[in-house]
Simulated scan of single mutants.
Amino acid sequence: MLPFGVDLITFFHPGFWGMANEDEVVAFGNAQPRPFWDRMLDTLEQSGVTGIEMTFAPFGADGLIAAYGSHEGARAELDRRGLAVASGFFADIAIEGGVGDPQSEARWLAKGEELAKALAGWGADVMVIGLPMRASWDAQPPLFVGLDLAQKAADFANRLGAAVLRHGVRLALHTEAHSMFCQPRDIDLLMLLTDPVYVGFCPDSAHILLSGGDPAAIAARHAERVVIAHWKDATGPMPINIPIDHAIHHAHRAYFCALGDGKVDFGAWAELMATRTSQNWAILEIDAVPDPLTETRKSLEFARTVLERLPPSRVGCPA
């Protein structure tokens, strides 16, 4: 059975830290990395998952190293808790935007390669990225995700993928809702334009559903390129005319729900992941919850139950 990790955005809720808002969480993580990481890793040790996916600061590689003094010290703290780094989410591209800008791309390539070196040193072999957000439907002038823009994004992804692969790390595109890699057509287009040698796929079941797609069907179209996947549930698609601004990620959270409580067909999803993909980890993604221990345990139990229900003759058998 696939081992499960959890994306550290799970710990972004200020209620878990007894703080008033997310800015305070970020400030605490940056100012006091040791108690910040100790609490997260101690909680994860109790949860039953065995891996972590790092994400934006202070939940990233730099924060982990700052907490324990060195790359090796960080690995020792993970090892003694029975945890491993499963993957790293390099969030700068999605947060900053600006694909096609030479200065931004040069900075991302350098930072991405540094992250890949750190991941490889911890035994991880996947780096996930998101692509920039779309503009709102009523933006003037409109921003169309056409062939020219998609080609710029694909060219950059290919170059970043080549850079990190030199360190034994595979790049994977994540299907972030309201980004230029979210609509079913967007996903097919970017998968076509990127080189499969250098660019893999990280389907996120909830984000695909938010964008109106069928998560299992879309992942199946590109199953051979899935190197990691985010297991997440949602109540249904979001309106296509919702404003895409600084609050869009918070707007997503109203649609996310516990695994099994939403509209994702996890029977089809689990069978696809178990029979037609090649990956070392599955990632539970639970956006910013006040009780990460309880929610992670519930999600892990649900995911394992779904996998256990698959017919033994199907598991491990390529379609």
Rank of each mutant, 00 (worst) to 15 (best):
V199I: 14
P312C: 07
C257N: 04
L192T: 15
F266G: 00
E224Q: 15
R309F: 08
P196S: 15
H222E: 05
R253E: 05
D287S: 06
D265L: 13
T275I: 06
H207R: 00
Y255K: 04
D291L: 11
F256A: 04
H178G: 03
M180A: 02
L284N: 08
H178K: 08
L193F: 14
A274N: 05
V264P: 14
S211H: 07
G267T: 14
L259C: 05
V197W: 12
L284I: 05
T294Y: 13
P203C: 09
D287W: 05
H246T: 12
V197A: 15
H252A: 00
I187R: 11
G260W: 10
V197I: 15
I240E: 13
I228C: 03
T305A: 14
T275G: 08
I244K: 04
H207A: 01
P239T: 05
Y255P: 06
I283W: 05
A217C: 13
M238T: 03
D287L: 07
G200P: 10
E285H: 11
H207N: 03
G262W: 00
P215Y: 12
P311K: 01
P312Q: 09
A217H: 10
P243H: 09
P311Y: 01
H230R: 03
T277E: 08
S179M: 10
F266E: 00
L190E: 07
H249Q: 08
F201Y: 14
P292M: 01
L300C: 07
A254H: 09
L192S: 11
A258E: 09
G260N: 10
A274L: 10
H249A: 01
H250I: 02
T194G: 15
L189R: 15
R221H: 08
A219T: 13
G212L: 03
E285Y: 13
I218C: 12
A251M: 08
R253Y: 09
L193N: 10
G260K: 14
P239E: 07
T296P: 02
P215M: 02
A219C: 12
M238F: 03
I218T: 13
A229P: 01
T305S: 15
A229I: 02
L189N: 02
A288T: 05
L293H: 05
A216D: 07
F181P: 12
L210M: 02
T294N: 15
K263L: 03
A288F: 00
G262S: 00
E308V: 08
S211D: 08
P243I: 01
A219D: 06
